[in-house]
Amino acid sequence: MNSRKIFYLIVSFFLFLLVQVLILKNMVIFGVVFCFLYVLYLLLLPLEFKVITMLLISFIIGISVDLFYDTMGIHTASLLVIGFIRNQWIKIITPTGGYDEDLQPTFLNMGFGWFLTYSIPLFLIHHFLFFSIEMLGTDLFIPVIQKTVFSATFVFIISIIVQLLFYRRRRGV
């Protein structure tokens, strides 16, 4: 972890946040497809990050997104779960040969199949938690499932595009 990497992570944090709250917030397709791209930032953090670091980072992202969405605490609550289970999930889906240390788990580095198994369940969990907390108190369950599935698929497609455009295939960051 050198200072260049840390600088890179901090800059991309602000970029993800600004894109999320200024552009993607207003982009909701057919009222069911939301684009919560900030989850991708959490997923792309280097593999060497410990759970505690992950939790603190996800708390900060969650609170900042909540500030702009006026959904105080909902993004935070669902993102924390992702921050907590990400490392466990990475361990479970270890490919044969294991991981290289300090690698960014982008799909360019790890291959499409691995990235699919890695990100889709986490996107689904995050979106399901978010929409069910948000709909709490109403008796609408079908929309929750609808929004979860469509949004997670959409975010996955967008995250592939983002990585193709802005990430380079390389060892380490």
Partner: peptide, 21 residues
């Protein structure tokens, strides 16, 4: 289990924010 404790604490803050909002 420090990671789990931190998780519970932060999650409690988030839930408190949801409820108080």
């Amino acid at each position: 289990i420090r990671a789990f404790l931190l998780f519970v604490a932060l999650e409690a803050i988030a839930i408190f924010l949801i409820v108080s909002n």
